[in-house]
Amino acid sequence: MKKEMDLGLLLMRLAIGFPMLIYGISKIQNGIAFIKELLIGYGISPLLGYGVYIGEVVAPILIILGFRIRFAALIFAINCFSAIVLAQMDKVFALNDYGGWALELLAIYLIIAMALFFTGAGKYSLSK
Rank of each mutant, 00 (worst) to 15 (best):
K3E: 15
D6G: 10
D6L: 11
L10D: 08
M12E: 06
L14C: 10
A15Y: 14
I16T: 01
F18D: 13
F18N: 05
P19A: 09
M20Q: 04
M20R: 00
I25S: 05
S26C: 07
I28C: 11
I28L: 15
Q29M: 13
Q29C: 04
Q29I: 05
Q29R: 13
G31F: 07
A33V: 11
F34Y: 14
Y42F: 15
G43D: 11
G43T: 08
I44H: 12
P46R: 02
L47D: 12
G49T: 03
G49R: 03
G49M: 03
V52K: 03
G55R: 00
G55V: 07
E56C: 06
I63W: 06
I64R: 00
I64F: 11
I69R: 02
R70Q: 14
A72V: 01
A73P: 08
I75M: 08
F76C: 05
F76S: 05
I78R: 04
N79K: 08
C80D: 00
F81S: 11
S82C: 09
S82W: 13
A83C: 00
A83L: 07
I84M: 11
I84T: 05
I84W: 07
A94R: 11
D97T: 02
G100V: 07
G100S: 13
W101H: 13
L103E: 01
E104G: 06
L105A: 14
L106F: 11
A107F: 14
I108V: 09
I108S: 04
Y109R: 10
I111S: 13
I111A: 15
I112G: 04
A113H: 02
M114Y: 00
A115N: 03
A115G: 03
L116S: 04
L116W: 00
L116I: 10
G120S: 13
A121R: 00
A121I: 01
Y124Q: 14
L126M: 09
L126K: 05
S127F: 09
K128S: 12
K128L: 13
